[in-house]
Design a binder for these strands. Sequence first.
DNA 1: ATCCTCCCCTAC
DNA 2: TAAGGTAGGGGAGGAT
Length: 975
Amino acid sequence: MRRRGDKFPDNGFEAWGGYMQAKIAKLEDQFSTKAEKESKLSNIFNGVSIFVNGFTKPSADELKELMPQHGGVYHTYQRSNDFIIASNLPDTKVKNMSTAKVVRPEWITDSIAAKQLLDYRQYLLYKNSRTQPQLKFNKIKKDHVKCDTQNGGMHEDAILYAKEMNHIINEYTFKETSKELDMCNVPTSNPKLPVVENKSKKSDSVAKTAVDPNFISEFYNNSRLHHISQLGAFLKQHVNDLRENNDFTFPARAVLKKNIQALNNVQQIEANFDSGKIIMHIDMDCFFVSVGIRNRPDLLGKPVAVTHSKGKQGRPKREGVDRYTEFNLYKQKQAHKLGKATGIPVKDIEIKSRVDLIADEDDDEYGSMSEIASCSYEARAKGITNGMFMGAALRLCPNLQAIPYDFDGYKEVAYTLYEYNTIAQYTLDVEAVSCDEMYVDCTELLNDLKVSVQDLATVLRQEIKTKTGCPCSTGFGGNRLQSRLATKRAKPDGQFFLTSELVEDFMFNIHLKDLPGVGRQMAQKLESLGHQTCGSLQTLTLGLLQRHLGNKTGAQLFNQCRGRDSNPLTFHTVRKSVSAEVNYGIRFENNAQCYEFLKQLSVEVHSRMQQLKVLGKCITLRLMVRDEKAPIETAKFMGHGFCNVINKSSSLPNSTNDIEIITKEVISLCKKQKIDPKEMRGVGIQVTRLEPLNAKLTKGGISKFFNKNVTQHTFNSKIISEDENGAIFDINQFKFEDGGEPKLPITPKKENKLLSPIKKSPKFGLLKSSPGKKRGILDINQIKFKDGRESKLLITPIKGNKLLSPIKKSPKFSLLKPSPGKKRGRPPNNAKSSLTTSKNFMDKFLYGQNQVNEQIQYKKENKDQILCNDEKNTNEELSQQGLSGLPWEKVRELLRAWLDSGQSPKFCDTKMIAGYLSKLVLNKDIDKVYILVNYLKRRTDELNNSMWTEVYDYVLEEVQSSMVVVYGKKLWIND
DNA sequence: ATCCTCCCCTAC
DNA sequence: TAAGGTAGGGGAGGAT
């Protein structure tokens, strides 16, 4: 089982990966290969890897020799965990990298001379307190790390640092491995030595088929598609989190504006803003390749492909492979599908396929069936495309350079692209598409900066390039479709603004295949109708398209081919399903093996569900089974070959995330199919109809928070440290602006505010201060505020005494009844039952909605904690206390789950949230109030549902009334 | 009409 | 050798 997230809970990015075992395996590999090849002089650099940047003394070549001799690893191109060895670096480079790991080469030579690893910090090329490593040393237990005598007098922190940087998580394994290598400086392949026992066991465990216990982890660790998918999902969540935890002030905009103004050709603002929005689409150019050659200038300008295959290398022969038959089956199926869709006789259809260029099985040179994940533009010029087989690609371009995957590198670059240090420091109106692609609604940003689209693009692209080392392209347009097509035009390494005047001409020549949503099937269908371009398709009527393609798809295409797209960017995503599947390496001999694998896959799904904190109600098993006409041996090694797909699902009586239930259900579904396990070629498990769970807010968990200490801590301390990022809330940091014209150095947003009239609810009019009005004074001694950030808190003066009067409960407030208006999503179970059940959403969270499931779960996971059941805390008491005893992160989490629940809001929940926020106000925790209220506002805006809007209005009224009581002023709200 | 289920398709 | 995952949208057709 892969374990995720438990080791590095403080670092979201690491938590995502968590492939501990694989990492360790990789590490062991590094050691063993070295040990096999070199006769080592020492183990000084065990666990240390370096990358040499620029001219050094000793030279890169000499270091390359030295490192393995002393137990270290030398990388020809940079990996994320490397120490960077450099004697000097140009300033521009330094600006754009973390200098925490840049070390002078003397570190290496001195360490060797001293026969021990010296503290690298004495050799840092740049000593900048701001960029010093911020290690959470307490995360690693000291007693695990004592690296005994083998490391000589190595500074303990240095050991820790080296280890952390190299992601050596399992100290035990690390030690064992090192010791083994220490014991014998001999090739580990010698079968006589004890170590070899170990080694040979290990090589046995190189997972070949799904029967191997390590197969899932091994496979996922090498699967590009898995990485792409997980990274994408992670980044979407990341954007959710950013928006949730951010106050939406963007101090970095000032710098951005300066940088833009520093461009030579400062233009005045174009008429960008005449018609609605400006959407930007950012896409890294051939992402995997760009990351892979960041430190391989020798490959720049050459045809390069990222692939598992090493090139024209001989492959072992496999009996029974019949590529011709297998490929033909695919083609026939495709032809059949097309014939059915278009009415063209199947025999008249000729299918082109990516297998066309691939050679016979026994052709060593052009026969590789390794897929190309990404290829450079030079390779594309030769006709190579992503997804093509290596054999075919080599035929098109015999000097194609194959480079390996660098999944850590992709992760690192993606993170750079999405973290505060690039786009997110300027705006959070970001929709994450994938690890290398995003949409940004630039309307507000451009308005604020008053710069041209082109200048903004130039500076942003440059910034991304310097920070990631990879080129990207950006496209701009009035909607997401236009911006996307613009990017396509801009590539590679360019930018393009598709202005509204250009759209019509531009669209005319766009190939239908280039429209998002038009894939192979649709493109072929449309081609069979006689259309290949948007211009051509524009001649068809809406009705005709809908008849051929269905209502939605038809309408979508009708609009798309005219450049129209009314789909807004989605800044917040809610998960609807969780799944795991493996369609590679599946070769079972008997049912037992099959069920064992299903069990492992269930564990995988379960752990993903836990991470996402969801329960699910519907479980689907997906099987790929060899088609009877297909050869038993597949064309691709361990591939699935030509298969039939079986989907079977089962609805559970209750939502669950119980591993036992999932496993049982999946195996039972599988048994029912009565499929010969020998014929299985792929297995997948999917869980749908999700609902949120917060296991920590079960009864036992909650009573902890009613502990007196916690309460005191929350309410009385002036300096508290409960921010999950470790930030300290410190009143001394608080600044408040008083009187006169607002200077607004802190909140660029405010400028907009003052420029643009308020459109929304008329209530808001009262909250706004008009530009000339004086601001009130707030007693800063009573405000808690986050460390290190400037204030965005603004309090408007009270408008008359009216606002002090008690708040009337709006009579239209009708949350207990389902609105007859539009429905969103699937109501849980059925609408009636959800309304009549006694428990509301918050209660479910607080007291355990799926009490059975959860408590079982809870007991399993918290055997030690369950002792704290102070039964005096009855539900009733908790009800009275509401949320006020909870840490605010919990409330935020709860609020999020509530908004994501897909249910109709209930008044009691609304009241609870409002009550909590009011208490925060009384507690003068304005910072948190501000974040929560704005989060609520953004989310309810997005939900665009009158019931939720009422929730917001109600909560805001409550908050503002408390504000008036406490401060005599209202909280300033972003609009 | 409006749903649910079982697909297929698309995107990265 | 090779690592063909995963989430979401939507259509077809049957159930309500």
